[in-house]
Amino acid sequence: MDRLRRLHHQPSPPLRSRRPQKGDVNGDELEDPGRSQARQALGRSRGGLTTKVHLAVDGRGLPLSIVLTPGNVNDATAFGQVLDGIRTPRLGTVRPRTTPDRVLGDKAYSSRAIRHLLRRRGIAATIPERRDQAANRHRRGALGGRPPAFDKVTYRDRNVVERCFARLKQFRAIVTRFDKLGDRYRAGVVLASLILWLRESTG
Rank of each mutant, 00 (worst) to 15 (best):
V25G: 11
R44N: 03
V53Y: 04
S45N: 12
Q21G: 08
V53Q: 12
E29L: 15
R19K: 14
G59Y: 00
P20H: 08
R60E: 05
D32H: 15
L30I: 14
G48C: 00
L55H: 06
K52R: 08
L49I: 02
D24R: 00
R60K: 03
T51P: 05
R44Q: 06
D28P: 06
V57G: 07
D32L: 11
G47E: 01
T50D: 00
L42A: 07
N26E: 15
R19F: 09
R19E: 10
E31S: 15
S45F: 05
E31G: 15
Q40M: 02
V25T: 15
R39I: 09
R60P: 02
P33Q: 08
R60D: 07
R44V: 11
L30T: 13
E31D: 13
G23F: 11
G23C: 10
R19N: 09
R46D: 13
G48I: 07
Q40V: 01
L42S: 02
N26C: 07
G43Y: 01
N26I: 08
P20S: 00
L55R: 11
D28T: 15
L42D: 02
G59W: 03
Q37E: 12
G48H: 07
S36V: 08
S45Q: 03
G27P: 05
D24K: 07
H54F: 05
A38I: 10
T50Q: 11
G47W: 08
D24G: 02
Q21M: 10
G34F: 07
H54Q: 12
D58C: 05
H54R: 01
E31N: 09
T50C: 06
T51L: 04
R60V: 04
P20C: 04
S36D: 07
T51E: 06
D58I: 10
R35T: 06
R46F: 12
A38E: 08
E31W: 09
T51C: 03
L42M: 13
V57W: 00
R19T: 00
R44P: 04
A56G: 07
L55E: 10
Q40N: 05
D24S: 14
A38N: 02
G34W: 05
Q37S: 10
Q40T: 04
R39Q: 00
L30S: 13
L42K: 11
S36E: 08
G34T: 14
N26R: 15
E31M: 14
V25R: 06
R35C: 05
L30P: 02
T51D: 00
G48N: 01
N26P: 09
H54D: 11
S45V: 05
R44F: 11
V57S: 05
T50I: 02
R39D: 12
T50K: 03
D28F: 13
G23D: 11
D32G: 10
P20G: 02
L30D: 09
V25S: 14
R60S: 06
P20Y: 01
R35P: 03
G59K: 04
S45L: 00
D28I: 13
R46N: 14
V53C: 09
L30R: 14
D32K: 07
E29G: 08
K22V: 14
A56I: 07
R35H: 06
R19V: 09
G23V: 03
N26Y: 01
V57K: 08
E31T: 14
V57F: 06
Q21E: 15
V25F: 15
D28V: 08
T50V: 04
K22W: 14
K52I: 03
R60Y: 12
R35W: 10
H54M: 13
A38W: 11
L49D: 10
